[in-house]
Design a protein around this nucleic acid. Structure first.
Lengths: 155, 155
DNA sequence: TCATATACGATAAATTATATCGTATATGAC
DNA sequence: GTCATATACGATATAATTTATCGTATATGA
């Protein structure tokens, strides 16, 4: 029903990494390689994730030998709702939403829909819920103790 | 990011239909054919949807010539959270959740995960939100005025 | 000029969701 | 009993989406 896509998930991992690092050294720069190695993610996927994060404006990039990524916005100013929209685009719990008054082709088969206005209302309540969650919460948790041997998880 | 699957969506349409019909005539029975014709859904898909709904225990079925489906539980007693779990199984915003203390193979590549406990916490908060929504809200909305010519939507 | 980084489009692979088909079973009316 | 009407349900095909991979371009500092 409800699942973050992997890019979003890896994006959250990267943001936690960068924000905790920032607390220790605000001038630090983080490369895709560093994230990939820290968590055992494939480099290519990590690089894509960071490029996506950069497109959202939450982090910024610098090319070249001493390049890498740095935070551009404070995570206290970004809600989970905004983050999901930035990462995955404007979305809805149903395909047809967006226009409360009229059904559309995207409803699929149904040529008549009685639940649309409720769905739209739900959508708003859901987004309100997501907007109440600050991304800064990411920084709070303890460092996870679990660490596995890498070979177990590489195919 | 977050989208109901079609079966769940059609299920909500069917529940609204049945619950409003129940208000007018508590002894009434609803067939898959009636739902399909009322909203322009393909019969086979509607039938599957109603069978799924029946498996959840929210409606019950009767075979035979005067058969069909009737509500088994009051919609005031079913939350959206419970409904989604019944229709789509226990789910989580991330693949790896379920066990707060240990990462698992389902995390995918990552052999170390720093966001897992936050994800699990989010999951609980999200489910709490969904549980605060009564399925009975479905009955409330006005009858939708939009109705399209059927031929526009049949491929 | 070389090593290191990001940029980014194209495409392949895998997964999941959706739709379709066929056949079985139950029931009421006649 | 048989016929029309309904649900039951597994198997499978199709479509859609997500995820992963590849190749190449561009930028920068030593």
């Amino acid at each position: 029903m409800i699942k973050l896509n992997k890019t979003t998930e890896y994006g959250l991992m990267a943001l936690r990494h960068m924000s905790r690092k920032y607390l220790l050294d605000p001038t630090g720069v983080t490369s895709a390689r560093e994230i990939a190695d820290s968590y055992g993610l494939p480099f290519e996927i990590t690089a894509k994730t960071l490029q996506r994060l950069k497109e959202t404006g939450i982090i910024q990039s610098a090319h070249g030998a001493k390049g890498g990524y740095t935070l551009q916005r404070a995570l206290t100013e970004v809600s989970l709702g905004e983050f999901l929209q930035l990462m995955e685009g404007p979305q809805s719990i149903v395909a047809c939403s967006g226009d409360v008054d009229h059904a559309s082709l995207e409803c699929g088969y149904a040529y008549r829909c009685e639940i649309k206005s409720w769905m739209n209302q739900l959508n708003l309540r859901f987004f309100h819920f997501l907007s109440s969650i600050q991304l800064a919460e990411l920084q709070e948790g303890p460092i996870q103790l679990t660490e596995f041997k890498r070979e177990s998880f590489i195919k």
